[in-house]
Design a protein around this nucleic acid. Structure first.
Lengths: 138, 138
DNA sequence: GCTTGATTTGGATTTAGTCCAATGTAGGAT
DNA sequence: ATCCTACATTGGACTAAATCCAAATCAAGC
């Protein structure tokens, strides 16, 4: 929401029409868009916005921790605005549909010290793969 | 090993110098190479092998289940020859170093039916992120 | 309203990967 | 041992995703 815009302004983000539009696009949709899809939707609201700006803005939102980059399919990165509620992804291997899921348990706890090789482990990303109901039927 | 070549021949794989070289490269290294790195190492053994062939061959090895494609960093895909022992990956967020790890527990069991949305879930991929000892020090 | 440093732009560039028509070859048939 | 042909390889062109950059623009503090 405009929560997002507030937070960003509070962090010294200079507010421009372009940034507002990108933020709005991510905010309106609780889906997982590629940079190009974000650009397409942004253009609908602000015709002259450039691809480079969309990439820049997405990159900034990611650094600020407001948006997550997910690499579920092996083509373009997708941007997940739901950065504040921890979740994982369930992906259809055929059609690429993505759902947010909330597994029980904490996968971090499943990695014993002996398997950490001295790393400071701070994060886990879990991707479940399978077939969505539609694709399973076909 | 040449186990691999045997298995492939057994499945009707036509054996060519190029395929042998790609298989050898993956076999010799227990690392996680990009297609380009595989190509570079293959060229050292067979100078005229083309990039297209390396891509083709890697693709076939993946379909045959002999090699795993991993998308740990968001740039190039990496190829993991250790397809026969199930494992997950631990990645250094700074330098990109990758280690195979074996978490306890079964993440599939952590996804309740109510969180499956009718999907037929067949696979999970877990990526742990953090800093390797060297990068943590710096 | 100025000024200035941050932001945007679009076009060129890079990176990763795919495609394809022409050419070459592994391996079964003879 | 040679021939045949379906399968493989080649390299160069092509696509997609993303990055880079110098010039132009503009938000926001004064």
């Amino acid at each position: 929401m405009s929560d997002l815009l507030e937070r960003l302004r509070g962090r010294g983000w200079r507010m421009t029409a372009q940034r507002r539009v990108v933020a709005e696009v991510l905010d309106g949709e609780h889906v997982h868009l590629t940079a190009d899809e974000v650009h397409a939707r942004a253009v609908a609201k602000l015709p002259e916005i450039s691809r480079a700006t969309v990439y820049n803005t997405l990159g900034e939102l990611v650094s600020l921790g407001e948006v997550l980059e997910v690499a579920t399919d092996k083509r373009a990165k997708r941007y997940d605005p739901n950065a504040h509620r921890p979740h994982q992804h369930l992906v259809c291997a055929r059609c690429g549909a993505i759902r947010d899921v909330h597994p029980t348990g904490n996968p971090l706890a499943d990695l014993p010290d002996t398997e950490r090789f001295g790393f400071t482990v701070s994060d886990v990303e879990v991707t479940y793969r399978g077939l969505c109901p539609d694709c399973a039927r076909a």
